[in-house]
């Protein structure tokens, strides 16, 4: 047997009822994360990254959302089967989340120390003066300069980067096992973005957390993740160890995404465009969702939906023409959801 995964998601599906009809935002998604590991989910806007994260924590309002799946097993417990009350204990305590926009997640009329203390009270046994002391320690840990003095400031006194640091302090206050970071640096400047990512990764090491990092930026993913899951239109199209994915992407969408991105130092007159636009989730083509934009598509692709197939190194890819694309590379059999 292999080591048990901290999080094991099997066939997670999220549908929304909308005036325009029912759409499937996340379609039979399976993945797992081992203790201490970083899995990145990458994909373009609307592919279902945030909905996946929200569904794991059962934060989606239902209706309009309908969540189904075989299981979302975390530390051996199926989160889909938990009562709302038991779920509240998991949230913020065993699994914490940080969002893209720290300002909307922070309470503007309470000091940052108060907001960290609230998390400490809810999730730890600390009481009395130890709470404030720990809050200052946490601010120091996330590298807020002069934490003692800044603890009693309000969020609007902080820059965007400092607010994200405060959010991280709140998130790690309870010593969670899994940190979900949904585009944690997208709204920040390049230098601050790199500071925050570095901070998250160093805290992850220090606390032995697992990290689910959600990003649309292949560069961020390449520098941070152990494994990468590429999503397109609600479905996983490729999942590989980070080195394999970037050395030899297999799915046509992953390849196209990499070639569409400017590569500093390698100037091309024109970038390789991906023609067309992402299809509407309410109106997906019957076969492969990428078929209308894929350079390798043929009439089979328009009819048949590809299923995930194992490739070497514990990766998997969903493409009907994988043989052709993978070339001579031998493929190892893989069972979905079981880490190799």
């Amino acid at each position: 047997m292999t080591r048990p995964a901290l999080l094991d998601v099997k066939d997670l599906t999220v549908r929304f009822r909308t005036p325009a009809g029912r759409l499937t935002a996340v379609d039979r998604l399976s993945f797992d994360i081992a203790a201490g590991e970083t899995l990145a989910i990458v994909g373009e806007s609307g592919c279902g990254k945030s909905v996946t994260a929200m569904a794991l924590l059962r934060l989606l309002r239902s209706p309009p959302a309908e969540i189904s799946g075989s299981h979302v097993r975390f530390e051996g417990t199926d989160l889909l089967a938990l009562s709302e009350r038991a779920m509240r204990d998991v949230r913020g305590n065993r699994i914490a989340m940080i969002f893209q926009d720290p300002l909307s997640a922070l309470n503007p009329v309470r000091t940052v120390a108060d907001q960290i203390i609230e998390s400490l009270k809810r999730h730890t046994g600390l009481r009395g003066p130890a709470l404030h002391r720990r809050a200052v320690e946490l601010l120091d840990l996330v590298r807020i300069p002069e934490p003692q003095r800044r603890a009693d400031d309000y969020p609007h006194h902080f820059s965007g980067g400092m607010r994200q640091r405060v959010m991280i302090a709140i998130a790690i206050a309870a010593n969670p096992r899994l940190l979900i970071a949904d585009e944690p640096t997208t709204a920040l400047d390049v230098t601050v973005q790199a500071q925050i990512l570095k901070l998250i990764v160093s805290l992850q090491k220090e606390f032995g957390m697992s990290l689910l990092l959600i990003s649309h930026d292949l560069g961020v993913v390449a520098e941070t993740a152990d494994r990468v899951l590429v999503m397109y239109a609600g479905r996983k199209v490729e999942e590989r160890p980070v080195a394999d994915l970037f050395a030899r992407p297999l799915h046509p969408y992953t390849r196209a995404l990499m070639r569409a991105r400017p590569t500093p130092g390698l100037r091309r007159e024109l970038l390789d465009e991906i023609p067309g636009i992402v299809p509407s989730l309410a109106d997906l083509p019957p076969g492969c969702a990428f078929a209308p934009r894929c350079a390798h598509a043929d009439e089979t692709c328009a009819r048949l939906q590809p299923v995930l197939e194992g490739v070497g190194g514990g990766g998997s890819v969903a493409c009907l023409h994988l043989d052709r694309l993978a070339g001579e590379k031998p493929r190892a059999p893989v069972l979905e959801g079981v880490p190799a």
């Binding site: 820059s159 980067g161 400092m162 400047d189 390049v190 230098t191 601050v192 973005q193 790199a194 500071q195 990512l197 570095k198 990764v201 160093s202 090491k205 930026d217 292949l218 560069g219 961020v220 390449a222 520098e223 941070t224 980070v242 080195a243 970037f246 990499m258 991105r261 590569t263 500093p264």
Partner: peptide, 27 residues
């Protein structure tokens, strides 16, 4: 130089965020 160093790079063998030297501070 700080901007170039901070830029995320697709080279998981050589460029990992944990090993980068990032300029400190805010604007």
């Amino acid at each position: 130089r700080a901007l170039i160093e901070a830029l995320p790079r697709i080279d998981p063998g050589a460029s990992r965020i944990a090993d980068k030297t990032i300029v400190g501070g805010d604007l």
